[in-house]
Amino acid sequence: MISWCAGILSSLLLLLAPLWAWAQQDGIFDEYRAMFGDDNPAVFVIDEGEELWFSKAGPNSTSLEGCDLGLGAGVVEGAYAQLPRYFADTDRVQDVESRLEHCMIELQGKTREEIHAKPYSLRGDLGTEMEALVAWLAEQSRGLAIAPGQAHPSERSSYELGEQLFYFRAGPHDFSCATCHGQSGKRIRLQSLPDLTAHEGAAEAYSSWPAYRISQGIVRTMGWRMRDCFRQQRMPELIMGSEAAVALQTYLAVNAAGATMAAPGLKR
């Protein structure tokens, strides 16, 4: 009998289904969140992202280590927090997802089609490479200030276009982002809505994505958040890393600038 293997159970945490309904109320969600302590299932996804970054993949059998996310090839620490920004090699303002796509194509030889086939998990999926990479990269910016580029004219026009898109009302329901996220202290059903036009609300939202969504059992990225908001606005599907996706994230990131990145977070 090996004594150091006593098998004493000192803590056991289970997520209980009946807490779900309550979890949607903010105060109670905070309590629920506190039960996790430092635990966030995203840690597993972060590990996967790290492995993916360093593993050889694609027709060129190359890792992503040579990928320049804005701070130089292979520099990942702090890179997420300074996106979106302008990249001279593509002559575009890019978010983390469109930049990763660029590197997967240029370095690894992957095709745009395969990258776009399923960048975000569908219900019941176990996670995608894009989600894992973004989770790991966000982790490399945890605790750093959100500082998107605004020095280049393209970066400023991306912000202005993002603002226009934020207020763009269309579709059968006449919804825009501002319909739900243009005022503070409001909620849909029991879900409270951050005011993304103000620093406080934008900071709260931008700093906490990507996040592990408990209700979906998956890490979701800010790009997915944009796409799913448009789905709820009754609009067509937003293309990952598209100019509109980048412009809206630029708008949010600039409104949130100065706040501290705390992602991957843990959400309802």
Partner: peptide, 29 residues
């Protein structure tokens, strides 16, 4: 842990989808 049982639990329908389990046991290297 090295083939010795350190947790043996009975679960039911009240546990959430994609359950996350956290536990500690004494010892281990």
């Amino acid at each position: 842990h090295n083939d010795k049982i350190v947790l043996d639990a009975f679960w039911g329908a009240a546990v959430s989808a994609n359950p996350f389990l956290g536990m500690r046991f004494k010892g281990g290297s």
